[in-house]
Write a protein that binds this DNA or RNA. Structure first.
Length: 300
DNA sequence: AACTAACGCAACCGCACAACC
DNA sequence: AGGTTGTGCGGTTGCGTTAGT
């Protein structure tokens, strides 16, 4: 464990600044200080809290990991879809994208893009920022996510709606990694916008349709209101279906599914069907792999 | 069982910008 | 006006874990 210390020669105060992974004790100190004094003035905060860290490091740790409303676990299909859509509009504006995925951090979204999406692009030998890849995402990935969402819209017992999610190995893991942070705000619920999806033409007005995200008053993505500071409640609307923060019930009737080119999907075969029969939890790791294994150049 | 490669993610870095003095 | 400090963002790195051989 490389708990490296940074030696800064020009200031004794800055000497022995810690770097590397945060310890539980450091986390605890930061959490309790912020609980008492609030955020902001990070350099001052670091000193006053007795942390041998830079203000920057404290801010990052808090925003990306310790903040009580941080949502842990794999991205849901809805969230993945939202990321793909928003990225196609805004590019690498991770913080802007993150504003519309409450509980998710820009860092997490950025990591998702780099590890999953760009990996797809690499495998397809397409530049991830190219128009070809964008169209591939629109034509194949998004419809697939939509179908996954439709498949998973079969009612899931609300008794399963706990603050756990499935990790890559299929075992459950707590959404908040930090018991201290959780205890500080046990009832924290990620703020949500009211969103719904509908089909819309692509920029070149082709027949391809893909989901667009609108606020409840039909604003365009660029006009989406900022995520409110405080959550409106534990339930939010997705299309004309209200679903719980942790369980997603999606009414597929809001999508113009006929307009989607789903031919490749129909060829997915028994393998996929068997997978789709699986009772998937929030994490959707299984279906991620499914999408990856089924999306290839032949389909294009 | 041991080794290696690939993956996922927390953390860091550099830069840009705004606010303040 | 210019310098300093604080903050935020996007890009990158490094390490622990997992999967494959």
């Amino acid at each position: 464990m490389p708990n490296v210390t940074k030696k800064v020669c020009n200031s004794n105060e800055d000497a022995d600044l810690r770097r590397g992974p945060w310890t539980l004790e450091e986390d605890s100190m930061l959490i309790h200080y912020i609980a008492c004094h609030g955020e902001g003035r990070w350099n001052l905060l670091a000193k006053c809290a007795g942390l041998k860290r830079t203000g920057k490091s404290c801010r990052l740790r808090w925003l990306n990991y310790l903040k009580p409303d941080i949502k842990r676990g794999n991205l849901t299909s809805q969230e993945q879809l939202l990321i793909l859509e928003l990225h196609s509009k805004w590019g690498n504006r991770w913080s802007k994208i993150a504003q519309h995925l409450p509980g998710r951090t820009d860092n997490e979204i950025k990591n998702y893009w780099r590890t999953r999406v760009q990996k797809q692009a690499r495998q397809l030998n397409i530049e991830s920022n190219s128009r070809t890849f964008l169209e591939a995402v629109r034509c194949f990935w998004m419809p697939r996510l939509l179908q996954k969402m439709e498949q998973t819209s079969s009612p899931i017992s609300t008794s399963n709606c706990s603050l756990t999610t499935m990790n890559a190995q299929g075992s459950s893991a707590p959404l908040s990694p930090n018991p201290i942070a959780s205890s500080l705000s046990p009832s924290s619920i990620p703020p949500r916008n009211l969103l719904h999806f509908e089909s819309y033409p692509t920029e070149n007005s082709s027949s391809i349709t893909s989901p667009s995200i609108h606020s409840s008053d039909s604003l365009k993505i660029s006009e989406l209101p900022q995520v409110p500071e405080q959550p409106a409640g534990p339930f939010h609307a997705f299309g004309n279906t209200v679903y719980n923060t942790d369980c997603h019930f999606v009414d597929s009737s809001i999508y113009n599914m006929e307009a989607l080119n789903l031919d490749p999907i129909s060829a997915m075969g028994a393998y996929e069907n068997s997978l789709l029969d699986c009772h998937m939890a929030d994490g959707d790791w299984l279906s991620d792999n499914m999408a990856e294994s089924l999306w290839n150049m032949n389909e294009m």
